[in-house]
Nucleic acid binder design. Structure first.
Length: 284
DNA sequence: CTTGCCGCCTGAGAGC
DNA sequence: TGCTCTCAGGCGGCAA
């Protein structure tokens, strides 16, 4: 599934292949994919027709095209979303949801099997180039403006478990279940540790590990971009090799050899090493 | 105000 | 073989 590094790969692909191409007559093939565009699918299509993307930006797992009309085309891939640039004559994908013809004879296609993702046209909120619905999303750890000390302070204000805080997009954005587990494994911290119980060194170390694992994933994720189309496939490359905890239930910890355990958390899975990441004595 | 849980979706894979 | 069940999980919305 697409995570921050995969979204960044897509952003770069759109920058290379969508910027400067005028958008033609947009077709919404599944209304759920534009459900957050409150005025409806017809308005969505009308506002994009004739617009030209001038840049592509990203915060966390949200990305958006800045259009010459002043509008912003926001995309979130959810669990299974893809943004493809395909020749117009190529057959439709099974789960094609939105078609955006481009002036160079190709099409920007939003493909999304499970429809957790969405597209919408928005305008700037606090900043003219940042969609208003993204205003509440915190900076991500790869943003040049990201300050680790600020995140330490934000963690301090939370009264919850450290993994829950990492997954809270209003605290820090772009961290999903996989990178949270990986950063916690590298830090030797159990997901259930209290945010308030962490020392400054532990919190700063955790943040550095989040940055490291995302940067390493981004390097590998670069291979998912292929030639003339934007290939979004979060399951390729990095997932095969780089993971130390996520999905490795019963496999030996790469540090100490103890079997990785899977625990239910927030209706999903958390993977950790029971020896390197001891559970807190009393959960609160 | 805060924290925490539910439901939305489809397909893969396991079990019977 | 074909059915049912479980799992994957980001995030808006809402309950406590």
């Amino acid at each position: 599934m697409p995570e921050l590094p995969e979204v960044e790969v897509v952003r770069r692909g759109l920058e290379a292949h969508a910027v400067g191409r005028k958008i033609g007559r947009v077709e919404v093939l599944h209304p759920r994919s534009v459900r957050r565009h409150v005025p409806g699918a017809a308005d969505f299509a009308a506002r994009l027709s004739g617009a030209v993307p001038v840049s592509v930006r990203r915060r966390g797992k949200y990305m958006w095209l800045v259009l010459d009309t002043g509008d912003l085309l926001l995309a979130h891939l959810g669990m299974s979303g893809q943004m493809l640039v395909q020749p117009a004559e190529r057959g439709d994908e099974k789960h094609l949801r939105v078609r955006l013809p481009l002036s160079d004879g190709r099409e920007l296609r939003f493909v999304d099997q499970r429809t957790f993702g969405h597209l919408m046209v928005d305008t700037g909120g606090d900043h003219p180039d940042v969609p208003s619905v993204v205003d509440h999303i915190a900076l991500d750890p790869l943003d040049p403006a990201f300050v680790p000390g600020d995140l330490v302070k934000a963690l301090r204000t939370k009264r919850t478990e450290v993994k829950r805080a990492l997954l809270d997009q209003s605290v820090v954005s772009g961290v999903g279940n996989i990178y949270a587990d990986e950063a916690l494994w590298r830090s030797g911290l159990h997901w259930g540790r209290s945010t308030r119980g962490l020392s400054d060194a532990q919190a700063l170390g955790l943040i550095a590990h989040v940055q490291d694992v995302m940067n390493e994933a981004l390097e590998v994720g670069g291979t998912t971009f292929d030639g003339l189309y934007v290939n979004v496939n979060g399951e390729s490359g990095y997932f095969e090799r780089g993971l130390n905890a996520y999905g490795r239930r019963d496999e030996p910890c790469g540090r100490c050899g103890a079997p990785i355990v899977r625990e239910a958390f927030m209706n999903r899975s958390s993977f950790s090493c029971p020896r390197c990441q001891p559970a807190p004595r009393a959960r609160r």
